[in-house]
């Protein structure tokens, strides 16, 4: 019995480090980056996925449960993007603070208007999300809106550092607006350009840069490309000048490559999340995408 008690005490000692600020569990790197930018040194940010992972399909790994157990704030993308794993992780963690609906649970997609809200819900249409397309991170203007709401949430959860959070955010927001104007100007020649996508991960990017989508390699969202569908798409592309084929890096290369060779349109691996959860990571992400697209002249 004594041994059990001392083991318990040891565990509790491990449990309460000298940390005073917020522990943030972010599902995607872009939201981790925002939490880090807002929180600065006052927060400890854990990011559950990385840019090379398909955020739809992540295992509810034990390590994620351990992290969710310790979190003060979960920053999720929402719009059902993480429906395959986050609910299990949160329920298994036994953390009262981060139950959906409580202040410790924040959803980015709930802060901005969504695109591609399906008119009907039918699994025959593939992996449709009832709330709309969840890949909002690819629009830096929406990211700004999300960050502003997140600042409010973090300030409410940790009033002692509220002024720091607001100050950090103000600084970032003005830098960000300048950066977005820069990218928008750089991407001006892309306005009206046509793209083909592998997965419907880019509607927010398209809206921001004024791109038009001709079609998708996946016959339905989340359904692997078939040769018949690809052939149809190729025929469709023959009549229209297409600037590029956009592919999330986690999808298989082969279908895009085939279509690129068949149509002469370059295929670009366009990340759906920043490589690093930091301000620089966010900047490199958008700057890289704009540069990729501008360079991919037809």
């Amino acid at each position: 019995m004594k041994r059990i008690v001392s083991l318990g005490l040891l565990l509790m000692a491990l449990a309460s480090p000298a940390w005073a600020g917020l522990k943030v569990f972010a599902t995607l790197p872009e939201w981790g980056a925002l939490a880090q930018i807002i929180g600065g040194r006052e927060v400890d940010v854990f990011v559950a996925t990385h840019a090379r992972q398909d955020p739809h399909h992540v295992d509810a790994r034990p390590s994620l449960i351990a992290r969710a157990r310790a979190a003060d704030l979960v920053v999720a993308n929402g719009a059902e993007l993480e429906i395959g794993w986050l609910p299990v992780v949160l329920r298994s963690a036994g953390n009262a603070a981060t139950v959906p609906g409580r202040p410790g649970y924040f959803e980015a997609a709930a802060q901005v208007p969504l695109l591609e809200i399906p008119a009907r819900l039918d699994r025959a249409d593939g992996d449709v999300h009832a709330a709309g397309n969840p890949h909002i991170g690819l629009d830096p203007r929406r990211v700004l809106t999300v960050g502003e709401a997140l600042t409010g949430r973090m300030a409410a959860l940790d009033p002692a550092h509220a002024s720091t959070y607001h100050a950090n955010w103000q600084g970032f927001a003005s830098r960000w607006k300048t950066a977005v104007d820069g990218w928008s100007a750089e991407a001006a020649p892309l306005k009206g350009a046509t793209i083909v996508v592998h997965h419907t991960a880019y509607p927010y990017l398209a809206e921001w840069l004024g791109l038009k989508r001709l079609g998708a390699l996946e016959p339905k969202p989340g359904v692997a490309p078939t040769s018949a569908h690809l052939a149809g798409l190729r025929a469709q592309m023959a009549g229209t000048p297409v600037r590029a084929i956009l592919r999330p890096p986690y999808t298989s290369e082969a279908p895009g490559q085939w279509l690129a060779e068949a149509s002469g349109v370059p295929v670009l691996a366009v990340p759906v999340a920043p490589a690093e959860a930091s301000e620089q990571g966010l900047r490199d992400w958008y700057a890289g995408i704009v540069a990729q697209l501008v360079k991919a002249a037809p």
């Binding site: 802060q111 901005v112 969504l114 809106t145 502003e148 709401a149």
Partner: peptide, 16 residues
């Protein structure tokens, strides 16, 4: 109203 809502008046999550 159609434009992205300003953060101050964040749109509520679309409920069923």
């Amino acid at each position: 109203q159609a434009r992205p809502a300003p953060a101050a008046a964040a749109a509520p999550a679309p409920a069923a």
